[in-house]
Nucleic acid binder design. Structure first.
Length: 245
DNA sequence: AACCAAGACAACCGCCTGATG
DNA sequence: ACATCAGGCGGTTGTCTTGGT
């Protein structure tokens, strides 16, 4: 059986919402809540599909929405979280009270992406190479390298999940050794099982002289070992919360 | 004043996931 | 175990606004 569409298209209105429609939706939700979005438009007397109503409420009409321009702090937060989480807009929005995933997505595409691009232009005094110059090295000894190198890491991290393969790729950028505080208490020992299985890949950009990125497959105990990476990243102020994988 | 292009924002579409029967 | 549904998410498109000519 073919799955029915979320709403019957015939006769339902599309496009921008009118103030009257907004008023109807707001007053209905205040009175009845929104337990069932599919049934809501009919009950409220709106010629919209449930999805459209939900989106309008979530992105615009909700009372706790913060309107207006993003502050510098919010923009910095978005940039940092995007480096960690990738295009997981809802996860980013969850860390910015009053902001919606749609709004953050728009700001990212219209403003921050441009700013970040210019920010990442190579410069003489920058020790960090731009992301698009990285090289992935296929190396059978890579696990051995990676097992020792994290203690020499300082830290930026980004994570992208391929929805088709369900594979998460996390990239950790490593600054040059002389910049690093080798306080070993940040880095608890990890055991062999950390590297088992093939659930995710971590790419570790190594300091000179090799200047390569090690692609490391990590295993089922990755979540258990996240404190390890968390300590590394939080030490340098790159994250406040554990990233989700 | 009219037109056009670019930018900003709102809304839609299609897919995925978890819940349920 | 499977089919279906509703909600949620990210990508994309549509519409409106603004600035330049």
């Amino acid at each position: 059986m073919v799955r029915a569409p979320c709403c019957e298209k015939m006769g339902l209105k599309k496009g921008p919402w009118s103030p009257e429609e907004d008023q109807i939706l707001v007053s209905f939700i205040h009175k009845n809540g929104h337990a069932n979005w599919r049934a809501l438009p009919k009950q409220a007397g709106l010629t919209r599909c449930g999805k459209s109503c939900r989106l309008r409420w979530i992105n615009y009409l909700r009372p706790d929405i913060k309107r207006g321009n993003f502050t510098k702090e919010e923009e910095e937060t978005i940039i940092n979280l995007h480096e960690m989480l990738g295009n997981r807009w809802s996860a980013i929005a969850a860390r910015l009270p009053g902001r919606t995933d749609n709004e953050i997505k728009n700001v990212w595409h219209t403003q921050l992406k441009k700013r970040l691009k210019s920010h990442h232009e190579p410069s003489r005094d920058s020790k960090r190479r731009p992301i698009d110059t990285k090289v992935i090295r296929e190396d059978t000894n890579v696990k051995e390298h990676a097992r020792t190198s994290p203690q020499q890491c300082s830290s930026e991290m980004s994570s992208v999940t391929d929805s088709s393969t369900k594979k998460t790729t996390t990239t950790i950028f490593i600054k040059d050794e002389e910049e690093i505080d080798y306080s070993s208490e940040y880095f608890p020992p990890i055991d062999e099982s950390f590297w088992s299985d093939e659930l995710s890949t971590v790419e570790i950009e190594c300091p000179s002289p090799s200047n390569t990125i090690l692609s490391v497959e990590i295993g089922s105990r990755f979540d258990d070992s996240m404190d390890f990476w968390y300590n590394l990243l939080s030490r340098d102020g790159n994250i406040q919360d554990l990233p989700e994988f």
